[in-house]
Amino acid sequence: MLDKNGIARTIARELRDGYYVNLGIGIPTLVANFIPNGMEVQLQSENGLLGMGPFPWEGEEDPDLINAGKQTITTLPGSVFFDSAMSFGMIRAGKVDLTVLGAMEVSQKGDIANWKIPGKMVKGMGGAMDLVASARHIVVAMQHVNKAGESKLLPQCTLPLTGLACVQKVVTELGVFGFDDHGFVLLERAPGVGVEHIKTHTRGFLTAHGSEPEISWP
């Protein structure tokens, strides 16, 4: 079973030298801690920054300098500020190579729902709909089951959608999942997790042979 850092570390293997990457709030943010040494990756924050640096030293917080999660951050040499239209312009134009975001549900067709629980949670989609409609690679980081213990990998999403057939990979505490014409495909198992366990907790159609390797990190 993977913890949150394990999920982030697994997703960090998707990074490539020279990538421009947008990381969502929550587990996706942790991916920044696992960028391999020597690899140059630029983090895009959709509130208007390319080249996001780490949190500031205590006492050096700048209220004018935050990320999309409203956290105080810093710049790096080569960082750029821009307005929100240019920020989503570069997203829409497909310049962002990889988007990592959280989800409440993912369907076996790659649909994603992550912004609204009708009658309950009202937060809004923020930039998620723009990102999933346009990023070149979209990876979801999430827990495999919800608080009630029900699978979040479903035949069809039950919650209002964020985007259609856009997710290419899902990483949960149980494994790494891709997609084919039939549905989810188990690519790798989390250390110590058996295929039967994964099947039991996945409601969407899942192709799994049992020969899938355990996740390993470089």
């Binding site: 959709e46 912004w115 009202v122 989609m125």
Partner: peptide, 22 residues
């Protein structure tokens, strides 16, 4: 905000951030 929305006191249109900007 959430309270006023769920109680119907406030009318709300949620739209994608890039759509808002554009």
């Amino acid at each position: 905000f959430e309270r006023q929305l769920l109680s119907g006191e406030l009318e709300v249109e949620l739209i994608p951030q890039g759509t808002l900007a554009t």
